[in-house]
Design a protein around this nucleic acid. Structure first.
Lengths: 201, 201
DNA sequence: TCAATCAAGATTGTTAACAATCTTTCGTTA
DNA sequence: TAACGAAAGATTGTTAACAATCTTGATTGA
């Protein structure tokens, strides 16, 4: 994710790249993040970088202090994490159920593909990729169900994954998600929501 | 809220002003929002205005389309609103309980003040002010309990208030909030959470 | 008349220069 | 030596100009 030279990435891609670095822990918690450095890395001026940082701040991955720039958010407390997990679960349960109601063959293929990518990342034990693929899979059914809820979900999930992604075993991640996807493909609503709950909380 | 000339408002104030306009329904749903117009209104250049619009987009009050700017978000469906209300309630219950644990006399005074402002706005039947004061009161205990949760809460609440603020009676708003604040000042945890639930859902 | 095409205007996206603020460094003084 | 303060450097904040894209309206041709 840390290409040293990549001319003219779009604003969205800049955002994704920095978010990926935050999730993977590439940026330390109290280390300041400099706009000029990022601008050079992405081959743009500071404007688009500022937009991306502002967006990530609103998302909760970064915190902003006037005239001092941004830094990585401090991790959630156990209590906070529990509250956020509950919110995320409620949101995802609704979205997954809704998604299953209107799922067609294209959706099923995409779901299988996203699962394969996650398993492949787990095999390679590449933390940034695992986190990215994990989020991408969940994000898929959320986005399909409701664009309104997608941006809320992203904020919740990014904060959560920053807290725990470093201490979960890759084989667990694979197994948990395979169970969910299999239940979804079987159109077994109860099972899918049950396995989702086990994975999120 | 719509001052025609006000030189050098800070970025934060610009954000608050536009959010207030969105909540109060001053901007129609499919009416485009022009950066230049806002820049002139706030006495700045387009830069800070763009920052504010980007932030409100991330917050969910506006939606963004590349090369086309932003417009007011379409309202939540009934189902979505129900999911969001549940999330907001879970979040606020935790925060209010936490707030009550560490509340001191200064907090109590501030709470009374925020309630008075809300009641005053209700008497004057000024919708933008009512919405603003309603949010400010809730926001206070959320912010006191957890800065992490505050920004999440804002996104949830803005979307909700956009949907329903236009059809609630002012006397109900006053009564519901007075009951909550009285219970909080009495240190009656159960009652406070119960009345909060009645108000939010 | 209607549709397609092109030009003019309007709007957003990006950039570099400048201003304001913060941080660091170094010298002065008690 | 330690503390204070000023100057220099680094960083963020703002601005205006320019580039890219979209929209609108008129013109042309069938």
């Amino acid at each position: 994710m840390s290409q040293t030279r990549n001319p003219t990435l779009s604003r969205n891609e800049i955002c994704e790249a920095i978010r990926s670095d935050v999730i993977s822990g590439k940026l330390g918690f109290d280390q300041p993040i400099r706009e000029q450095r990022l601008a050079e890395r992405f081959g743009t001026s500071r404007g688009p970088v500022r937009d991306a940082l502002l967006r990530l701040t609103q998302e909760g991955a970064l915190v902003y202090e006037p005239n001092k720039g941004v830094r990585v958010t401090s991790p959630l407390s156990e209590e906070e994490r529990s509250v956020v997990a509950g919110m995320r679960l409620a949101l995802e349960k609704y979205c997954l159920a809704k998604f299953m109601e209107t799922m067609d063959e294209d959706h099923e293929r995409e779901l299988s593909l996203l699962l394969e990518r996650l398993e492949s990342a787990c095999e390679r034990a590449s933390l940034p990729k695992v986190a990215e693929c994990d989020l991408a899979l969940h994000r898929y059914w959320v986005a399909q169900a409701s664009s309104h809820l997608e941006s809320m979900w992203l904020g919740l999930s990014v904060r959560m994954i920053m807290k725990y992604s470093r201490l979960t075993r890759y084989e667990d991640i694979t197994a948990e998600h395979r169970r969910i996807v299999e239940a979804v493909l079987d159109h077994d609503r109860e099972k899918a929501l049950y396995f989702l709950e086990e994975n999120v909380v």
